[in-house]
């Protein structure tokens, strides 16, 4: 197991901060795309790392830490989604487009990448979740269905809907 992970497991917060620095970009990107809201994504990212700290002692290193953390993040966001129905509906903050500008996106095709990010954020939550997990993160329908406690057919239907809505939003 990685030494930094081992030190963090033993309670070394400096080591855990290093793990945070190494992984925050990926975790925040995931939270941002799944939630469609920059402010909520920051809250979720914090929750993910706090949860990771709490569960780290039980991490046995059967997978890479980054893999474990990524799955934990998906669980945290989906758990948040389940309780979202009792909260006030959050609206995508379209006045913060810079949140979706990343160095690599700017390098390739700024307009296109940002348009897609924005379009993803405007999808209905169910369709957005499946699109991000399947088409951006590379999970299979079976895994998504298991994580969401739904049927594979539901995941496929949501993906079909998401792709259709995105193509409409992008004018294709």
């Amino acid at each position: 197991m990685d030494l930094t992970v081992r030190r963090a497991q033993q309670g070394d917060t400096a080591a855990f901060e290093q793990l945070y620095r190494d992984n925050v970009g990926r975790i925040y990107a995931l939270c941002l795309r799944l939630s469609g809201d920059a402010g909520r994504a920051e809250e979720l990212t914090q929750d993910v790392f706090v949860r990771a700290w709490e569960k780290l002692a039980g991490f046995q290193g059967r997978s890479a830490f980054s893999t474990w953390l990524h799955r934990l993040a998906v669980n945290v966001v989906l758990g948040d989604r389940r309780s979202e129905s009792v909260r006030v509906h959050r609206v995508f903050a379209t006045d913060q487009p810079e949140k979706y500008e990343t160095p690599s996106a700017r390098a390739s095709d700024p307009g296109t990448a940002m348009d897609l990010e924005r379009a993803i954020a405007t999808l209905p939550p169910g369709a957005r979740t499946v699109f991000v997990l399947h088409d951006v993160e590379g999970y299979k329908h079976e895994e998504i269905a298991e994580m969401q406690g739904s049927a594979v057919g539901t995941s496929k239907a949501q993906l079909h809907r998401a792709r259709r809505l995105l193509r409409e939003a992008l004018g294709r």
Partner: peptide
């Protein structure tokens, strides 16, 4: 569309340093 999705960046930097809010928790 799928090419575009696959080309999205793996990482997005949050607008602020979240560690300051995480550490006390």
């Amino acid at each position: 569309l799928l090419d575009q999705a696959a080309a999205l960046s793996d990482e997005v930097a949050p607008g602020r340093d979240l560690w300051q809010a995480i550490a006390p928790r």
